[in-house]
Structures are given as C-alpha cells and as structure tokens.
Amino acid sequence: MTVGLVFDLLLAGTLLWSAWRTLAAPTPERAVILFIVFGLLMALAWARLSAPDIALAEAAIGAGLTGALLLDALGTLRRRAGGGP
C-alpha cells in the first residue's frame, strides 16, 4: 500500500463521515458548519484527483460562498424565531 492510497482511503472515509454528520446533524446550525467542513474536504479530494482548478473553485465557492449564504439564511431564521425582524 502506497502512502497515496492510504491518504485517499482516509480522505474518502472522512468525506463520507462528514457528509453523514452534516445530514444527521441535530440542529440546522451544526448542519451548516459541518457542510462547510465537507466543502473543504471536497476541495482536498479534487486536489487528489489532479484537478487544481476545481479544488480552487470548490474552496472559494463550494465552502466559502455557499457557507456564507447558508449562514446568512440561518441568521434570518434566528431573527424570525426570536419574534420580529
């Protein structure tokens, strides 16, 4: 077993684990945070697939912008739950 394969297997396991935790998270807050972690792990997976272009885009868009959008939506939710804007 080469070091590369060991790393790939570890990364694959972590990806699946983080996706599972994201989907099974008890609160939306935790789901969003775990999704950002998942996005960063995806960027690593793209790098392992020799796709640095996608890795760059995934880190900036998949984890960064999508995470910001989801967190902003969470803020709106919290304000509404708190009664009034």
Partner: peptide, 14 residues
C-alpha cells in the same frame, strides 16, 4: 496554469 475567470470571480465575490 490552474486559474481562470471562475476562480478569479469567486475570490473577488468572496
């Protein structure tokens, strides 16, 4: 090399 309009736009938007 790796880069281009999409990545540049993503960084600027961020």
């Amino acid at each position: 090399r790796p880069g281009g309009a999409f990545q540049a736009a993503a960084v600027l938007a961020a």
